[in-house]
Amino acid sequence: MDILAQQILNGLVLGSIYAVVALGYTMVYGILELINFAHGEVTMMGAMVAISVIGLGLAAGLPALPLIVLAMLAAIAACMLLGLGIERFAYRPLRRAPRLAPLITAIGMSILLQNIAMMIWGKQYIPFPPVFPQGEHRILGAHVTDVQIIILITTVLLMLALTLLVKHTRLGRAMRAIAQSQPVAQLMGVNVNAVVAATFAIGSALAAVAGVLVAANYGQAQYYMGFLLGLKAFSAAVLGGIGNIAGAMLGGLLLGLIESLGAGYIGQLTGGFLGSNYQDVFAFFVLILVLVFRPSGLLGERVVERA
């Protein structure tokens, strides 16, 4: 029982991170039909920038709370600039190119960002200084850390805010209009380039927060951390129905739960043949199942494949 509660809690924490990162994939896909494979690296950059800012702040003797806020804001600002730059220089020139071209550019951008991070911060895992509260609690038999509670609260707030933005603001309506018909959106006076840029900025800001939270949760970060995280968040977006905002949230949470429960019970299920180190298998197993049996995802309205 305790193990089940623990796995569910871990799954929700992990899943809420996937959900926030998946939102970045799905928003960009929704309006441009582009998979921004560099999105995972934006998450990594957020973590790295935060660690550097915290390191400087600690050296300057700043107290923990303002330092957390400062690090978070710095990560968000850096990632928004990065996202805007990626869109402007890597994707916008290829807006009218065949679909394979921006896809390959996205993969190239992902590798480029990894290498830049490796040159700045090195190959090793670097520790995330313990500035977040380090308390631990027992809730319903599960062992919960303060950081996990912070992650759940923050991600829920972010998802709520994004939903409100997309549903009820002028920018949100413009984003949905472009997703449904770019030429007609232009006829309404929507500046497509500006809205696309705003979409990248918002998705990147979400990724920054997710990156900082992940690094705080595991207590470390590394130049390669965005790769697997990004791939799993992408799987979550596909699971929920890529292009669908609610789908990305649902897909993220489900994928986190599946992974966590799978890792927790795979030993028992296979009689000890496979261990919890097979955790990563589940995300991609789910991705394959979705692509085979329901390519439009759980909440997807249509099959999006063209060409």
């Binding site: 309506r173 949905r176 209009a177 449904q180 007609v184 006829l187 309205e301």
Partner: peptide
């Protein structure tokens, strides 16, 4: 060229 997944009101707001 209406926006099919928007409500009537949202279309008019656009």
């Amino acid at each position: 060229g209406i926006f099919p997944r928007m409500t009537v009101l949202e279309n008019l707001q656009m």
